[in-house]
Amino acid sequence: MSRLWNFSAGPAALPLPVLERAQRELLDWNGSGASVMEQSHRGKRFIAMAQQVEADLRELMGIPSHYAVLFEQGGATQHFAQIPMNLAREGDSADYIVTGHWSEKAANEAAPYVRVHVAATSKADGYLHMAPRDTWQLDPAASYAHIATNETIHGVQFQHVPDVGSVPLVADMSSDILSGPVDVSRFGLIYAGAQKNIGPSGLVLMIIRRDLLERPTRPMAKIFRYAEHAANDSMLNTPNTWGWYLAGLTFQWLKENGGLAVMGERNRQKAELLYGTIDGSGGYYRNPIDPAVRSRMNIPFTLHDSALDAAFLQESEAAGLLALKGHKALGGMRASLYNAVPLEAVQALVDFMRDFARRHG
């Protein structure tokens, strides 16, 4: 068996050392004689591991002590609805900055629980750019302002943390968390599905300022209330123990490889290599996104002739390059360059792209 270069948008590539260690420990974790998936989440071994995982994450991201770290379930999509349930009272409003498919979906899913105010959107031009900050119509009385820091489908990414005034900034970081340094103190709440840069699907990482946990909310079951999860160390119910464990291995891998500053530089190099190949192809390959907001994680592109798409996908997979088919909403191609995708993989991709263009004219 040989592993191929995986450009999947999610579930996505995991670091090979993480997979190899999980393989070694699958039947006998931590000398326990059983898999981590067979351990009680309330046992001493698992609790000690969970505490170390949180400590590693806090070190990596520089998370201040007045933020709680939660390991949730449901995928980020569930939290599109759960966030307004926890941060807004009935009748409150929230600002949403719509920059692509996922921020638009977040706004739509929040609508039953908060008065959604779209403070800015670039939908009219197909999300090829972001609305300039000085055009945003923010409400200083909003319960929070929501962004998606990176749009996996449209390939648009915030290059800086936007200023939204005194209201808490809520960010869906599912596809770019841990891809470089970030100032956590600029946010009220960060949430991220695990299946891009953290681990397997089924786990949601949440970093929330503790004062927000004290906000009065509507009546709801305890299982939906973030304050209850924080009070119970994310073990109000049985957590995703396998996902938590693998997230911990990924955090250790990140630390061993220099942390988020090093990872950010690697991701910059990978993205520049691929964008340079697209832009330098004389129009054979195209990416229409405003260069000022191009994503370093997800790079959609098209061929000059869509009739070549099928051949490109068939030949690229035969060359060991997986999951390059674009999202059905846009078509074309998409290469996702998450942390676990090395520079060698991107080099292999651009070599193939240049060869394909030579052979197919």
Score class of each variant (00 low, 15 high):
144 Y>P: 00
340 A>I: 03
128 L>P: 06
94 A>Y: 04
129 H>Y: 09
202 G>Q: 06
148 A>L: 05
111 A>M: 02
189 L>Y: 03
338 Y>N: 13
270 K>H: 01
79 H>V: 02
294 R>V: 10
13 A>D: 09
158 F>C: 00
102 W>H: 15
192 A>D: 00
147 I>A: 01
37 M>Q: 15
356 F>Y: 04
298 N>V: 07
61 M>R: 00
90 E>R: 15
48 A>K: 13
180 G>F: 04
2 S>L: 13
306 S>K: 11
184 V>C: 06
146 H>S: 02
311 A>H: 10
325 K>R: 14
332 G>T: 02
246 L>R: 12
33 G>Y: 14
166 S>E: 14
253 W>E: 11
166 S>T: 14
3 R>N: 07
92 D>V: 08
238 T>A: 15
273 L>Q: 02
266 R>K: 10
345 A>R: 00
189 L>C: 06
164 V>N: 12
280 G>Y: 00
349 L>V: 08
36 V>W: 12
125 D>N: 13
314 Q>M: 07
49 M>I: 11
155 G>D: 11
333 M>C: 09
104 E>L: 09
51 Q>D: 11
293 V>T: 06
146 H>C: 01
22 A>H: 10
271 A>K: 00
164 V>H: 07
238 T>R: 15
139 D>L: 01
126 G>E: 00
202 G>S: 06
76 A>N: 12
252 Q>G: 05
328 K>T: 13
3 R>Q: 15
306 S>C: 05
286 R>S: 09
